[in-house]
Nucleic acid binder design. Sequence first.
DNA 1: TCTGGGGTCCTAGGACCC
DNA 2: TCTGGGGTCCTAGGACCC
Length: 417
Amino acid sequence: MIENMIFHIDVNSAFLSWEAVRRLEYGEKTDLRDIPSIVGGDIKKRRGIVLAKSISAKKFGIKTGETIYSALKKCPFLTIVPPNHDFYQKASACFIDYLRARLPLVEQYSIDECFADVTSDKNITENPIHAADDLRKEISNKLGFTVNIGISENKLLAKMASEFEKPDKTHTLFKDEIKYKMWPLPIEELFMVGRKTAVELRQCGITTIGQLANYNKDALIRRFKYARGTMLYEYANGIDHSAVISNMPLPKSIGNSTTIASDIASEEDAFLVLLSLCETVGARLRKKNLVGSTISVSIKTNNFKYYSKQIKIPYATYITNAIYQYAKSIFSTIWNGEKIRHIGVSISDLNEDITRQNSFFDNNEWEKYTKMDNAIDNLRDIYGKDIIKRAGFLETNLSHMTGNKQDGNETGLRSHL
DNA sequence: TCTGGGGTCCTAGGACCC
DNA sequence: TCTGGGGTCCTAGGACCC
């Protein structure tokens, strides 16, 4: 007797599919999904990695996350299109809304994945495969892209199921199917087994999920510590008690980071980048009406060494300038002069009570900064991000806001946007 | 022309208190 | 007199996800 029924719905090659739909609507003849193609960053700006790939690109052995340089070696005539994150956000919202209108309880897991608890819907539970197939067809017809749906009794197994053959497929992975559908898979395929863990498991002689499931649990805990060891053992055995939650809890942190097109070697240059990152972090906080009280700065050097530091500030804020002042002082304490490739700013200890920041600031100061930031946000919402810049940016060619966003030129995902 | 940007969670070790 | 032990909080770094 199955107590719960969970669907995991995963957009096939999301960024690439969405990009393909957008281009077809613009009248482009070629469907990116029909040719070897990828969505990838700009090599000249040192962001040259594969973000999404078509099925035929996958057949050349191209993997998400690998460098474009390496992808081109595998397929020299690969079509590469730049990412368009603002548009993906809209396509994602459209996808999630569509699911929420049709399924009883939907949890967004990432930009292109949802869990749905369909236990309460008799029409679905009586014939889940049929219901999932119908849902897939609907999405494909109405929104123009395909999804995989995994069906099981918990989130982990539903997610593992949706990873089976792609694209445009429904798969089940119920408890009694684990032995022959999941256990023969290589250990890397298990959710939460990344590169490092896979190497360690193989050192223990564990190469398949089934071997992990039948390994001594205490030995796993000794090797991987309690939380991780337990999780690995349970996941390999298909155990997961986490619930599908509909309303997104508050985010734990909001950040912005960027890889600079060429290495930074002076504090002056670093401060400009920091300011642009703080602009984005502040604007994102204000947009969500959140304040935060722990600020952290991270640096990646040109040798890929990482440094980070965080401080708790005596009040919570969403004011760009306040975040920036702390970020500068953190930066100065961690930077030892090595050439910098990447800088990040992030704020945590988030809170919805925006009056809290009042207690520290002089009332007039707080009001002044808040009014200024809000005015800037409004101008940027109406006229675009470049309408106003802080003075420091006027004589540089640095982007004054990063955020990995592009403005304008987005169109509908069919008629649904 | 090698290696993004957005997050979450966990751990070890230090500071500090009683 | 010869360094206990429990508890909490903080933080840097590392692992993982998409």
